[in-house]
Design a protein around this nucleic acid. Sequence first.
RNA 1: GGGUGAAUAGCGAAGUGGCCAAACGCGGCUGACUGUAAAUCAGCUCUUAAUUGUUCGGUGGUUCGAAUCCAUCUUCACCCA
Length: 373
Amino acid sequence: MDKFYLEILHKDENSNARVGILHTPHGDVETPMFMPVGTNATVKTLTPEQVKACNSGVVLANTYHLHLRPGEEIVKEAGGLHKFMNYDGPILTDSGGFQVFSLASRRKITEDGVEFRNELDGGKEFFSPEIAIKIQEDLGADIIMSFDECIPYPAKKEYVLKSTERTLRWAKRGLEAHKTDQALFGIVQGGEFTDLREYAAKELAKMDFPGYSIGGTSIGEPKEVCYKMIQDAVRYLPFDKPRYLMGVGSIDYILEGIENGIDMFDCVLPTRLARHGTLMTSKGRINIQRAEFKKDFHPLDDECDCYTCKHYSRAYLHHLYKVHEDLGKTLNSIHNIRFLISLVEKAREAIKENKFKEFKEEVYKKYNDPRGF
RNA sequence: GGGUGAAUAGCGAAGUGGCCAAACGCGGCUGACUGUAAAUCAGCUCUUAAUUGUUCGGUGGUUCGAAUCCAUCUUCACCCA
């Protein structure tokens, strides 16, 4: 197996944006990149071939949900996640730290870990930093995450400090328990507080992870707060290691992240929006359910090179939505994923020419949606 | 020709004397969605600016009050000849 590392090819002269190649056991992928999310070992409504056709690199899966069903022992017996879900590119598993946030009403946090009450039969599921690592080792992704708490926003500084310190202790415990050569990332928490983000980033850097994530963003905080959290965290992370901004998938957040030196993004936004009939375009979002698209025979986005835009009209996608045909969700997901991947591809080209800021301004200028990004 | 049953908002369907402008579902129109408990969720959907006006097949009654009771007509469904 090849060694995991980020090869930085070029840094933009006018910002912190950089382009690179992430070397992984399942292939080299270019950064910055957008990673589609396949929580249950599938990017919903898409085959791996369809995901790859969007020029995907890394794809995500989720430790908590796969632990519940089918269970990591089955995935292991199947030959690991890649074989199980038939995706031969790099895979990243999230640790279950996000579920500490999203399933807050059904879990209890202690120093040792988190006890979840699962939604299937009410059974207890205990996740410790060590258990989360062990499960991820069984799942066999290329990149795995430390077990953390995704801290809600807003939260009192007193709590954010307590939680951030605990997440740091958990990162260290996970690191010590980690046995395989999968790349384990530490996760920077610290909420909206500059000093806590700095503290968390510095402490994690000392532990020398092969990569670093920034967590606890895009969970309802104002845009400016999110941008500040990114900057506060990135500043103290080692330059030559990959930086992963977790859960970010809107155009503006991705571009701001890239400008600040982020290499990896993941988000359920494109796939969820797609299933719900909202399409991302260079000019703004489209709600394909709207009556105005009934007779609109244009593609979703003139500038998009995705399979959906090449072959289907808005009218057809509107029709599929109205009659609840699964194909609509598939075609919409292909478009939204390709749209974001294409966005970061263009960003990479701009960085190589030291024109990232101009590129960003151009994207913003073209975008005209009163509802925002 | 005889009998029985039914007609409620765009559709289906509750309601069988006042709490009914009328449940609920579908359809229609809009929104939301950011490390996925999400093919989900929320709002509006007779008419008004309105506590406004007009409704429950038609007409005429009974009653303080009718979608609900009575009479009659129309249409539909099923059954008998």
